[in-house]
């Protein structure tokens, strides 16, 4: 069986593969959208890189 020709198996699985592909692309788009929204609405953004994490710092005394 030549690899270039579609077998019955390929045809049978085509719709399933398309469906799964669509779901994966949609999931990536969803996570990207969420990231944009979270960043834009000003959620606390913290990373584990070269700056102190806000939530781990001792609370500052209120200014007089």
């Amino acid at each position: 069986m030549a690899i270039t020709r579609d077998s019955d198996m390929h045809r049978a699985r085509f719709s399933r593969n398309m469906g799964l592909g669509f779901v994966l692309v949609a999931f990536a788009a969803l996570v990207f959208g969420l990231t944009i929204v979270k960043a834009k609405t000003g959620s606390t953004l913290e990373a584990f890189d070269h700056q102190p994490r806000v939530t781990l710092l001792p609370a500052e005394a209120p200014k007089q």
Partner: peptide
Amino acid sequence: SYLERQNEAQFG
């Protein structure tokens, strides 16, 4: 080898 499964699951 591809085992012929008569009722292979579709996405639906």
